[in-house]
């Protein structure tokens, strides 16, 4: 039995905001099944008394002095923008038509 169906992949693609063709979904569903089958073995050794590690070095909150420092100008910050207007990033409609 497959761990993951084509519909599951379509749902994941929607969550990840990637359009996918039918052929891509079919192919990826097969690959995901194989890959998940291979990586699921982590469960064999992940006993309940083992604490998880998210990061290789223990990091606490790292803060810096709250002082004004030079930073990018608006022109520099916008230099890679696909579209801009009045010193702002110009984006497609977010809320849909009125």
């Amino acid at each position: 039995m497959s761990a993951i169906s084509r519909d599951d992949v379509a749902h994941l693609a929607k969550l990840a905001r990637i359009s996918m063709s039918d052929a891509e979904l079919d192919h990826l569903a097969q690959e995901m099944d194989l890959i998940l089958g291979a990586v699921a073995r982590v469960q064999e050794v992940a006993a309940s008394d083992v604490p998880p590690t998210s990061h290789p070095i223990p990091v606490n909150n790292v803060v810096r002095q709250d002082v004004v420092r030079p930073s990018l100008t608006p022109q520099e910050a916008l230099s890679g923008a696909p579209a801009q207007s009045e010193d702002r990033f110009k984006v497609p409609q977010i809320l849909g038509e009125e």
Binding site: I4, D8, V9, L12, A13, L15, A16, I18, M20, E24, L28, E31, M32, I35, L36, V39, A40, V42, Q43, V45, A46, A47, V50, P51, P52, T53, S54
Partner: peptide, 28 residues
């Protein structure tokens, strides 16, 4: 795309503990 979809799955509700959570324990 393959890795984004795999990661999205491993982090999704219902699978998080079995996949990402277990992998973090392996890291320990």
């Amino acid at each position: 795309k393959r890795r984004i979809i795999l990661g999205t799955y491993a982090l999704s509700s219902g699978y998080y503990d079995a996949y990402y959570g277990s992998a973090q324990k392996v890291r320990t």
